[in-house]
């Protein structure tokens, strides 16, 4: 980790100083700053907060939001909620994996895209839906995937 990364964590820790039960927001903000939670980052947070590193690791692995590996520049979330499943979401997934040559949860070699399957994005009436970063694309067909990816 770079020196500046430690500073970033310090700033996050400072914000939550003295507030009980703030491990999850600390990890959320650290991840937002650094992109993922490295072993080093978790150890550093443990030293500073006196929360055992085992507990931090436990929390990190429990919640799907936390990542322990670097991610691509853009995150693609494929909705696999019930409405999307009924509307053939698996075919959208296959088209994406085929196009990007990645496995579920994987990152492309050029570090441009990370693809995740999520339970529900809550835009069920637009099913099937994917979200690239913060933008949702609805009423998809496998053939629309290429055009969407080309925008990034």
């Amino acid at each position: 980790m770079a020196e500046s990364d430690f500073d970033k964590i310090d700033a996050v820790l400072h914000e939550f100083e003295g507030r009980k039960g703030s491990l999850i927001p600390i990890l959320q903000k650290t991840q937002a700053q650094l992109g993922f939670l490295s072993k080093e980052a978790m150890k550093y947070i443990s030293e500073k907060t006196k929360i055992p590193v085992s507990e931090i690791y436990g929390v990190t692995t429990f919640y799907t939001q936390f990542r322990m590996h670097p991610i691509g520049k853009n995150i693609i979330r494929i909705c696999h909620g019930t409405a999307c499943h009924v509307a053939d979401a698996p075919e959208i997934s296959e088209a994406l994996y085929e196009e990007l040559k990645v496995e579920p949860g994987g990152t492309t070699k050029d570090m441009k895209f990370t693809v995740e399957e999520v339970a529900c994005l809550g835009c069920c009436s637009l099913a099937p839906v994917i979200m690239v970063n913060d933008k949702a694309y609805g009423r998809l067909t496998p053939s629309k995937i290429k055009d969407i990816l080309a925008q990034y």
Partner: peptide, 20 residues
């Protein structure tokens, strides 16, 4: 932080306390 089980009330409270 993304865990379905946290919709269960006792799990939800554990989560607010900063635990699994």
């Amino acid at each position: 932080a993304g865990a379905f089980v946290c919709g269960e009330e006792t799990a939800l409270m554990c989560s607010i306390e900063g635990k699994r």
